Amino acid sequence: MTSFSRKSVGCSVAVLLGLSQSAAAEGGFFDWVHGDWYLTVGASGIVAPRFEGSNSRIFTASPIISLGKAGAPARFVSRNDNISMSLLDDGPVRAGLTGKFLFARDNDIDDLKGLDPVRWGGEVGGFFEIYPTDWMRMRGEVRHGIRAHNGIVADISADAFYDVTPTIRVSGGPRATFATAKYFDAYYGVSASESAASGLSRYDPGSGLKSVGVGGAVNWKATDKITATVFSEYSRLKGPAADSSLVKERGSRDQLMFGVSATYRFDFQM
């Protein structure tokens, strides 16, 4: 495991242990669980690159799920936030568990023929977010791959937001993603046998910066429980992703996606 991997795992474990100790100090786990909770569910329809690094796009749909203890409403929620369970929600600071479902990448299209398929799987880890001002949120996620890959992925973002009306909000800001070699190997690596079968140059990636970009959204709070969003994201592949023969010879460093989403919030007690 690289030094980047060890640091990422250490940060994730430290955050989660700290949250568990905090919950215990406030009266024990069961006392912490008792109370009002919310579950937000929904879906998004997205026009995005056919695969990571592709120069063509396809329409896909994905679920949106967020679970946490009820309290003061979150100041800001982004469609980039992965499935989240808040364990600490204290005004300007929020932290907890996060996860992401990963769809399989088959090799049934011309650009991927000869490459090993990537199995469906997921990523689990922790998130931490903070509001340095009343109009900006900064969020970080660190996740470890399961089944699809065995690497570690870290997302960092900052979003400024402004309420045009009481029900319409615009937001946007920069993003960056880092990953370890095992992640890049699954999605961007080309082994000797894959090179012979696909015609792509052999490529053995390391760890590092995956992409930098910017995104924006317009949110409409239709009711107290229903929210609809229009969004767009652009990212520029960097480092091990940009250097991949899959991207250089058959894809593009420029990745653009856009779409719409809708969510509904359920309130319940435990």
Rank of each mutant, 00 (worst) to 15 (best):
M1V: 09
S5L: 09
K7A: 06
C11R: 15
C11D: 14
S12Q: 09
S12C: 12
S20F: 15
L39Y: 02
S56I: 15
I58M: 10
S62K: 11
S62D: 13
I64Y: 10
I65C: 01
P73C: 01
V77C: 00
S78A: 14
R79Y: 12
M85E: 12
D90N: 14
P92W: 15
F101I: 14
R105W: 06
D110L: 13
D111Y: 07
L112V: 05
L115Q: 02
W120M: 08
G121T: 03
G122T: 07
Y131F: 04
M136L: 15
M136R: 10
H144R: 12
V153Q: 07
S157E: 07
D163R: 14
T177A: 03
T180Q: 12
Y187E: 10
S195P: 11
R202Y: 13
P205C: 05
L209K: 00
K210Y: 08
K210V: 05
A217K: 03
V218H: 11
N219R: 06
N219M: 15
A222I: 00
T223I: 06
I226C: 04
V230E: 04
L237E: 02
A242C: 13
D243K: 13
E249I: 07
E249G: 06
G251E: 08
S252V: 02
F258D: 09
S261D: 07
S261F: 05
Y264G: 11
D267W: 09
F268R: 02
F268V: 04
